[in-house]
Design a protein around this nucleic acid. Structure first.
Length: 153
DNA sequence: GCCAACGTTGGC
DNA sequence: GCCAACGTTGGC
């Protein structure tokens, strides 16, 4: 089983939105970056766990845990001209972008903030904390996963 | 294949 | 709202 971190702007889609979704499950649509897509398409498997990260908000940080609920499949929002994620270069017969379904597992009692994550040298190799990082889907090592989980308690 | 211009991300 | 950093685009 692999571990991940996935970013979303809570004003667009928050961990509460996920918890309130049918079956507490929703498609993670809108990833439009090749490196992130490759992680999703090539490495994510049902049963993997992911930290749900809230970005572009008053307290950026990790809000809780979700589970990958389905193998990657084409992100059909790319084919919808009315979607903010529309991409005419992706076509049903040649999909460019992929997504997984994610299932809510738990919401932390408090946000484990970006500022707090930065204080721990054990986490300094996380892509999230590197200068100028923009990756919205990234792997988390087992050690990092466990360390962050302990912070959240 | 280079690289300048442009658009986006995302913390602050 | 600002802006640093980075990815993408497209002319050449």
């Amino acid at each position: 089983m692999r571990y991940w971190l996935m970013k979303s702007e809570p004003e667009v889609f928050s961990i509460t939105d996920l918890k309130n979704s049918p079956h507490r499950t929703a498609p993670w649509e809108g990833v439009r970056n090749y490196q992130a897509r490759n992680f999703i398409r090539d490495q994510m498997r049902p049963g993997d766990r992911a930290y749900f990260y809230h970005s572009s908000c008053p307290t950026p940080g990790i809000a809780g845990i979700m589970e990958i609920a389905r193998d990657a499949y084409p992100d059909n929002s790319a084919w919808d001209p009315n979607s903010p994620y529309f991409d005419p270069k992706s076509r049903p017969d040649a999909p460019r972008w992929y997504m997984v379904d994610v299932r809510w597992v738990l919401t932390f009692e408090r946000i484990v903030s970006l500022m707090e994550l930065r204080r721990h040298p054990q986490l300094e190799n996380m892509p999230l904390l590197r200068r100028g990082n923009r990756l919205s889907v990234m792997p988390v090592s087992a050690n990092e996963w466990q360390f962050i989980g302990n912070l959240a308690v």
